[in-house]
Design a binder for these strands. Structure first.
Length: 623
RNA sequence: GCCGACGUAGCUCAACUGGCAGAGCAGCGGUUUUGUAAACCGCGGGUUGGGGGUUCGAGUCCCUUCGUCGGCUCCA
């Protein structure tokens, strides 16, 4: 994600840092081996801010073990061992590790030898060199020997300040059917200041965590009896939802969408037709049976929308047809995957399905991308990654529908749309949906977890299953292409993300409470109510704090609630028909008339309509 | 789902090796009528997540179940 590397870091420094962290990982695992003889090594790459090592330890580790391991690491460092490099034939290395009971290393080397690079992942290529199938490189640090490509710092004395952060389970080679190893995460830096800065950032991230802010600002809650992953939206959070929906509806209306509404359940037969059953069944809530018919909670809206499309004869003149719905879906996420609002079991999706011809896809797809970019501009989101996912030709007929020419064609169209729109993206093969290529917008939560925030997918397979057609200009039936898109993702994830993005200080148009009027003494309450009433009459969400507390107290509470405008009214303001305006930044903009205040608020609230939405609608290009 | 940790008042946290469940904030009642980040006094508040067990005695030890957290797997 962002920030925590020193700003001036050059790429060579960056490499040195990675080298040093990788060496730290070696020292860590050497310490674990000393403390827990019989430890078997997995792999231990560096990651964004540090390193980890996976290993099989005789007993499960707990966080209490980390200080002990750190102490052992310091002992090793005090011995100042050299990192000695040694190259040997691959068979010799296999024999060595087999003799030492290092089964995982044996497996890595055997794979490399027998199958070449096919099973070596990026996590593993720090251990073995996929390009070299005949010899292996070993590093010796004191009595500790590990398979490793290197490079390493020459001496362990070069390892900078470090800290072990957490311990957890991790499947060997990321496969849930294989053994679970113990993973220790750590971080290491050149200087103590950098380490402290990073640790401070971790604390800061915790303060931005949407789960904490969500509670403090009264946005949402969970209840054990309602069920895990089923958020309850409190009044303040509901304002966020409704403002986002208003934004979406205005934008989509102007972009030529029509709105529909569909039920939350449907019969089994529809999901057999759509292909969700049985393939998606494990992500769906189990069926409920009524009068011998099985119904499912909908995990997505597309089948319902397809039915609406199919309900009447469509002409080429009718399309693109863009059906939009903030649809509520239910997905049975595994219990361990739930995470605050970011990963839930009931979700409201900014969904729409665009039915169009092959010729129209490019424009439609680009228009959707512009819509994202407009939203992101509006929110000031600049830390994101657009990921273009294409199919893997080797999996046609399996993971992917067997229509090679359509894959090729639609992928080209998407690529051209992205290039034409001058949109930056990375391309990943083998990550497409089974029905077509897609773009995902990746963002990171405050604690650094990656999420797909929005998605835009081409579907050239499912419309056929639903028998969707349109009559072309020659009077023939043709199957339309469908674009699935959710530029604002789901309310749950988008709001979870925005909470962290703004650290709870939402822009005026989105803020659950936009202004609070603070009467200094009881005698100012009627005037305060009058000011509040005028704001509300103008469509602002304004409260009046008439508690018998002093001003400092009311200010503090309003600050903690991150209310954009605090309007202090006392004798002077009452007299003059004004309010003393304090912003949540702490800035005091002085005393202004209520009329001026309303004008200012109008202008600020109106910002959401301007440039960003023009981008969303592609107006800036045409203008 | 898997590995590990953690569940004490609305929130943040106490309670030494098993020995009378406590504090601050919030809430409520009263006093104060206040000018830009916490006025003062008082009061209520808990089946220590649920269930079972060990023990003279369990917040503390054991089992089980639910939930949460850190990862893994998976995903909007």
């Amino acid at each position: 994600m962002d920030q925590s590397e020193p700003r001036q870091t050059k790429s060579s420094d960056r490499r040195d840092l990675e080298t040093m962290r990788h060496s730290a990982a070696h020292v860590m695992v050497a310490a674990v081996q000393r403390l827990f003889p019989g430890t078997k090594l997995g792999v231990g790459p560096t990651v964004e801010h540090g390193f980890y090592y996976d290993m099989e330890v005789p007993r499960p580790l707990t966080s209490d073990d980390l200080p002990v391991i750190e102490a052992e690491m310091h002992k090793i460092l005090a011995e100042r061992p050299e990192f000695e490099r040694e190259e040997m034939p691959i068979e010799t290395a296999i024999d060595y590790f087999r003799a030492h009971g290092q089964d995982y290393k044996v497996e890595l080397l055997s794979d490399l030898k027998e199958r070449g690079t096919t099973r070596v992942t990026s996590r593993e290529d720090m251990d073995v060199d996929p390009g070299n199938r005949t010899s292996a490189t070993m590093y010796r640090t004191g009595e500790f020997v590990d398979l490793c490509r290197g490079p390493h710092v020459p001496s362990a004395g070069r390892i900078g300040p470090f800290k072990l952060l957490s311990v957890s389970g991790a499947y060997w080679r990321g496969d849930e059917h294989r053994p679970m190893l113990q993973r220790i995460y750590g971080t290491a830096w050149f200087t103590r200041e950098q380490l402290d800065h990073y640790l401070w950032q971790l604390d800061e991230a915790e303060r931005r965590d949407h789960r904490r802010i969500g509670r403090d600002l009264g946005l949402f809650m969970f209840d054990e009896e309602v069920g895990p992953g089923l958020p309850l939206w409190l009044p303040n959070g509901t304002v966020l939802i409704e403002e986002l929906e208003r934004l979406a509806k205005e934008t989509e209306e102007r972009a030529g969408y029509v709105r529909v509404r569909t039920p939350h359940v449907a019969k089994e037969s529809m999901y057999l037709r759509s292909g969700h059953l049985p393939y998606y069944a494990e992500s769906m809530f189990p069926p409920m049976e009524l009068e011998g018919v099985r119904y499912y909670l909908k995990p997505m809206n597309c089948p319902h929308h397809h039915k609406i499309y199919a309900a009447q004869q469509r002409s080429y003149r009718d399309i693109p047809l863009r059906l939009a719905e903030y649809g509520t879906c239910y997905r049975y996420e595994k219990s361990g995957e739930l995470f605050g609002l970011m990963r839930v079991r009931s979700l409201q999706m900014n969904d729409a399905h665009i039915y169009c011809t092959l010729d129209q896809i490019e424009d439609e797809f680009l228009a959707v991308c512009r819509m994202y970019l407009g939203y992101f501009e509006l929110f000031g989101i600049d830390q994101y990654l657009m990921r273009f996912s294409t199919h893997d030709p080797n999996q046609l007929g399996g993971k992917y529908v067997d229509q090679p020419e359509l894959w090729k064609k639609t992928e080209e169209i998407v690529r051209r749309a992205l290039d034409h729109g001058r949109i930056n993206y990375t391309e990943t093969a083998g990550e497409a949906a089974f029905y077509g290529p897609k773009i995902d917008v990746q963002v990171w939560s405050a604690i650094g977890r990656e999420f797909t925030l929005a998605t835009n997918q081409v579907d050239f397979a499912v419309p056929e299953r639903f028998g969707l057609t349109y009559v072309n200009a020659r009077g023939e039936h043709e199957t339309p292409i469908c674009i699935h898109r959710a530029p604002l993702g789901t309310h749950e994830r988008m709001i979870g993300f925005l909470i962290e993005h703004y650290a709870g200080a939402f822009p005026l148009w989105l803020a659950p409470v936009q202004a609070v009027v603070l009467p200094i003494a009881d005698r100012h309450a009627p005037y305060a109510e009058e000011v509040g009433g005028r704001l509300r009459a103008r469509g602002f969400r304004a409260h009046v704090d008439t508690r018998r507390e002093n001003l400092n107290h009311k200010i503090r509470d309003a600050q903690l609630q991150k209310i954009p405008y605090m309007l202090v009214v006392g004798d002077r303001e009452l007299e003059a028909g004004t309010a003393a305006v304090r912003l949540r930044s702490g800035e005091n903009i002085g005393t202004i008339s209520v009329d001026d205040l309303l004008a200012r608020l109008d202008a600020e609230r109106g910002q959401r309509q301007h440039a960003a939405l023009d981008t969303a609608l592609g107006h800036s290009d045409n203008a």
